[in-house]
């Protein structure tokens, strides 16, 4: 989902910065508030950041014959709400833009919007919907991580289609073209990401039940298993 350095026209690159900036500013405040209000959750917050950091470095082969990577933002979005992830995801993208020439500074606004804003919000929304419908913690976390990952790539497809409409078939044709590159590739990866996130939450329910109860993932002293 990384749009390469310089691969968005300057006006569009700037527009994505304008769109993303308020989310990141709001997210930084939310992060500070979270740490102040609940200092005990600091280590878990670091773990959620570490999860995105590790997962977004893993290129995994997919059925389409190309490879892509998970985003890992679903876990933090479910634990700490999406605003916090706009900062943590942004840090990951900045690291990759500066050291790996993966993504870029000029496209950072666009990449933050897909991976650190839309992905986490879709993840959190999916989690909430499944829980409200009476689904268990495991299925809700799976839906959150998998759909958040797919949504991230969906946004990248739309961003590229807007920037590079097909010479013949226009934006619609470009949506199909970039969709073919990213969307199908991402489906098995989204499933992997969902399963991995469920695994981490299961382990957390064993080691960090108090944190999960405080964060509202587990009901007080009732649900123990994911």
């Amino acid at each position: 989902m990384h749009i390469a350095e310089g691969y968005l026209p300057p006006e569009q690159a700037a527009a994505w910065f304008v769109v993303s900036a308020p989310f990141v500013v709001h997210g930084s405040r939310a992060l500070v508030r979270q740490v102040r209000a609940d200092p005990d959750s600091k280590l878990l917050l670091g773990a959620a950041g570490a999860f995105t950091f590790a997962l977004s470095a893993l290129k995994i082969p997919s059925v389409t014959g190309s490879s892509s990577h998970p985003t890992g933002t679903g876990l933090g979005a479910v634990l700490f709400r999406p605003p916090v992830m706009s900062v943590l995801g942004g840090i990951v993208l900045l690291f990759q833009a500066l050291l790996l020439a993966h993504g870029g500074l000029s496209t950072l606004g666009a990449n933050i919007f897909s991976m650190a804003i839309v992905g986490p919000w879709v993840a959190y929304g999916s989690y909430t919907v499944v829980r409200r419908a009476g689904g268990g913690l495991g299925p809700a976390v799976f839906a959150a991580a998998a759909l958040g990952s797919l949504a991230t790539y969906g946004v990248t497809v739309a961003q590229l289609a807007l920037a590079f409409p097909d010479p013949v078939s226009g934006v619609g044709g470009a949506l199909a073209k970039f969709g073919g590159i990213f969307a199908v590739t991402q489906i098995p990866l989204a499933i992997s990401e969902g399963l991995l996130t469920v695994l981490v939450v299961r382990l957390l329910s064993r080691t960090s039940g108090d944190d999960l109860r405080r964060l509202g993932l587990l009901r007080p002293a009732a649900e123990v298993r994911a």
């Binding site: 989902m1 390469a4 892509s68």
Partner: peptide, 9 residues
């Protein structure tokens, strides 16, 4: 199995 990002580029 090249990266999807590179394929898009």
């Amino acid at each position: 199995f090249s990266g999807a990002d590179a394929v898009a580029e």
